[in-house]
Design a protein around this nucleic acid. Sequence first.
DNA 1: CGGCGCAATCTTGTATACAAACGGGCGAGG
DNA 2: CCTCGCCCGTTTGTATACAAGATTGCGCCG
Lengths: 249, 249
Amino acid sequence: MAENGTQRGRQRLADRVRLELEREIVVGDLAPGVRLDEVGLAERYAVSRTPVREALMQLAASGLVEMRPRQGALVAAIGTFQLAEMFEVMSELEALCARLAARRMTPRERDGLAALHAACAPYLDGADADGYYDMNLRFHEAIYAGSHNVFLEQETRKIRRRVSPYRRIQLHRPGRLADSHAEHGQVVAAIRAGDQERAAQLLRDHVAVQSGTFVDFLSSVGRLPGHESDAPQRPAARAATQRRAATQG
Amino acid sequence: MAENGTQRGRQRLADRVRLELEREIVVGDLAPGVRLDEVGLAERYAVSRTPVREALMQLAASGLVEMRPRQGALVAAIGTFQLAEMFEVMSELEALCARLAARRMTPRERDGLAALHAACAPYLDGADADGYYDMNLRFHEAIYAGSHNVFLEQETRKIRRRVSPYRRIQLHRPGRLADSHAEHGQVVAAIRAGDQERAAQLLRDHVAVQSGTFVDFLSSVGRLPGHESDAPQRPAARAATQRRAATQG
DNA sequence: CGGCGCAATCTTGTATACAAACGGGCGAGG
DNA sequence: CCTCGCCCGTTTGTATACAAGATTGCGCCG
């Protein structure tokens, strides 16, 4: 409707490039801080620079890519401080989603949410964090959709996508998966019961806790991307950058 | 930091075009639904199509412009339904800003906010809605900044910009200015007192009321932009479109 | 007389060519 | 030996040329 900008068109090269780049960034194939050379990407996708530029700008607008005036584009490296800010907003938006979902979800949607929650369980045993991550995403998005507010749904999803490169790792903490699942269970119960305030509070805490564990993780490792997206790797020669990007993709 | 995409660069043509277009849209010189022809804008700003395209895409990403796949760009015409959705989100984000501002604002910031509130008063007598509108904006933005969450500040501002083409008119309702000012006063008091919940609730209601009055206004006039941004005026010939755009600018 | 299909024209999407600016490396001077 | 400044290569920003899709108007057929 809005934030996606030009999304409905199905065969534009710029969109194809954008979707592919977005996927690689969100999945983690392109790490934060990596330089995105226009001609390199153009060669890689066998298109000209024009669609690549368009894609980069769209991604910059969505926050996944940072474009410096005449210095090119990098995969956005979000500092710990900004990340905390984003979690603060995201927890509030998700809480709003939960509140509205508790109020507006149809019985069918409530059942679907419970089903999604149940579908997360199998991944706990195998400690399949990646598998759980995907189901977890679907669970949260079901709540977004349950708000019956498409704009809210999209905004929340946008922020989630934006922090997703940094969230994946945190679920690998021992015991976090089980805790997360248990918290989901409480949220489902509150939503099914139509308890708006409880649903909101539970999901807010759920997200905020993840934020907390994330910050813990960061400080334990010793500050990953830096406070101000500095030290973004020196590109040295263009060929090297290009090869690295290709390897990572 | 992120959503602005390429904002720091000061002398890029694309940015110049983007800022100018954004201003005209927000101010209302370019009405929702108006077609934005690339070559027309290029001639108008004496640049080539490339920067114009970039500007349009940036605006599309920010939601002020709607780009249809191979049909060009229009000034985004937000339907009443989506508008209501956006107000729902915005009231929540502003409430969050107020809550955080009540908690985090420095004494100096609190004084500044009160000063801004006071500065709004003179516009009430003359019924200068436009003047009040500008001061009102600065007042709200001071609260955003007071949250000390730059990301939240920017997101909230982005949404406000996006609905601003539709908000301007509503302040012309008789008595609304005075009510708005009174509500601001309560918000200031709550923030100065550090009463987070009260500040949040007051600002949420303040924004929600505006939403309500807006919907009232729309239904009284009979639904302005349509439910799904349809009927966007036929451009007929290109020359005509161009001339119209130029006239409005 | 009305509806359908074709074709011309305009508009967008993509590619390429050109210009300007940033960064790094080299050399000269202190 | 270090530092400052210039020069060159690389990369982005802009302009223009080309291709393809869409809309509109006209003509033809029912």
